[in-house]
Design a protein around this nucleic acid. Sequence first.
DNA 1: TATCTGTTATATATATTGTATAACAACCGA
DNA 2: TCGGTTGTTATACAATATATATAACAGATA
Lengths: 124, 124
Amino acid sequence: MYVKIDFNSDEAIYIQLRNQIIYGIATSQIQEGDNLPSVRELAEYIGINMHTVNKAYTILKQEGYVKLDRRKGAVIAIDIDKIQAIEDMKEELRVILAKAICKNISCQDVFEVVGEIFNEFERG
Amino acid sequence: MYVKIDFNSDEAIYIQLRNQIIYGIATSQIQEGDNLPSVRELAEYIGINMHTVNKAYTILKQEGYVKLDRRKGAVIAIDIDKIQAIEDMKEELRVILAKAICKNISCQDVFEVVGEIFNEFERG
DNA sequence: TATCTGTTATATATATTGTATAACAACCGA
DNA sequence: TCGGTTGTTATACAATATATATAACAGATA
């Protein structure tokens, strides 16, 4: 899986890394049961500190994307609580859609964009 | 317009305030041409520092929601660059929808939630 | 035993966030 | 003109978040 970090971004490195891994899962580049590199290995590869990677992994664990094991390392293991996930998503969408309404973007416009992104991910 | 700040939130106060004002515009509680309270007045009302309010106003200006005037104060003035706004929205939606796909949420599920939120805002 | 995991603990440097005080220029009403 | 308002800017300070660096630990593995 390809990981790209923008060091000039205003977004924290561990957040970027978390997102990249989530992209990887969404596009099926990595899937249930797959191993992620060890924190030290990935840190070395990207050129960042071990703790930054560990922070990303710990968040991914809390959010239900991986399980951490001392022997195996980090393994993709999606905890699907769909009800909860939809609730979380709704909260995040509120701000985005409020902005959209201010900018004259219609519900149909949003549907189109959502559809496009789903297609992007499904193609990988 | 009602403004509610959660001081225990992990979200910065000036971000919360920005969002609340965007909600106010999206729900037509405040509209084009309306005046926002002065930075000092709103800071006093909420119980926060003047500069925190100023930061929220400055961001709202940069993002094209208000115009700031020395004499009139902050005035709602939406700069509608729909193409740009859709592009920005798409970028924000990518992470959210990647998470959704991981959690087995379908495109139809997202449409429903988006529809619900649009209804919420349209009712005010 | 040597080596690999995640985990935890310190320490340090920098950036962000929020507050505090102060002053400035432009405007407005009396 | 005077006093008060507006956003704006500057400086300083404390608290927190972010990222790095080094080190050590317990559990698993070969």
